[in-house]
């Protein structure tokens, strides 16, 4: 399986993401700098990692979403390549328009950095096949702008189409309908604020995130 991790100036979870993908897939991802204009041919998975790309200038993810590499990521996603955006990566995907809505300042204003209980909203997706339906899992969050917003019609559509992948069991940031992670219409793009790569090896004390990568790799191998 071929994968790539995008690196922006200010990304800081890119290496953790690469380690988690390598553990699940057995091969190390290519690290792609923001100035790249092409995704290597045959790439099955692109990860947009967490961090503070471009210092969160203007809006979180705003500058990164207009960088050269994101045009290539967008084109790849539209061809059906799997794209996983975590934290700042989720913000970048909404700013790019690959996912609907926006991530706003946490309702409580504080930066939230802690383990959070989630419920799996859809375990039939490419990303969530290793979870049970409605399973309660724990994944850490670390963000200032994680308050998911979309208009009511969009929220209804997301829920109606089973595109809410994860919900907060305890809403830590004010997100509409407790949304922690959503899928695009094609089901090949997932954006989520919690960090599965930080719960993916025994030393983390929690393996709930590892199953996301395992299920994803399994799904991609099956279709390859």
């Amino acid at each position: 399986m071929k994968s790539a991790v995008i690196v922006f100036p200010g990304s800081n979870c890119d290496r953790d993401m690469a380690v988690a993908i390598e553990q699940a897939s057995g091969s190390a991802p290519v690290m792609l700098w923001h100035r790249e204009t092409e995704i290597p041919a045959g790439t099955d998975l692109i990860a947009v990692p967490g961090g503070f790309s471009y210092g969160d200038y203007l809006r979180s993810g705003a500058m990164a979403s207009r960088s050269p590499v994101m045009a290539a990521v967008k084109a790849a996603a539209e061809r059906g390549v799997a794209v996983l955006g975590v934290c700042n990566g989720f913000q970048v995907l909404t700013e790019t328009g690959l996912l609907p809505g926006a991530l706003m300042r946490n309702a409580g204003i504080h930066f939230v950095c802690r383990d959070v209980a989630l419920t799996v909203g859809n375990n039939q997706s490419l990303f969530t096949s290793r979870y049970e339906a409605d399973e309660r899992i724990v994944i850490p969050v670390a963000h200032h702008d994680g308050n998911y917003f979309a208009d009511e019609a969009t929220l209804d559509r997301l829920e109606g189409e089973g595109r809410v992948a994860f919900r907060y069991a305890e809403n830590v940031n004010g997100s509409a309908r407790d949304i922690a992670g959503i899928l695009n219409e094609g089901g090949n793009v997932l954006g989520m604020m919690p960090h599965p790569e930080r719960a993916s090896e025994p030393a983390h004390g929690n393996l709930d995130g590892a199953r996301l990568f395992q299920g994803l790799v399994e799904g991609l191998m099956a279709t390859a």
Partner: peptide, 9 residues
């Protein structure tokens, strides 16, 4: 519309 404002919000 392309950069300075996010017209979703």
């Amino acid at each position: 519309s392309k950069l300075l404002a996010n017209t979703v919000i």
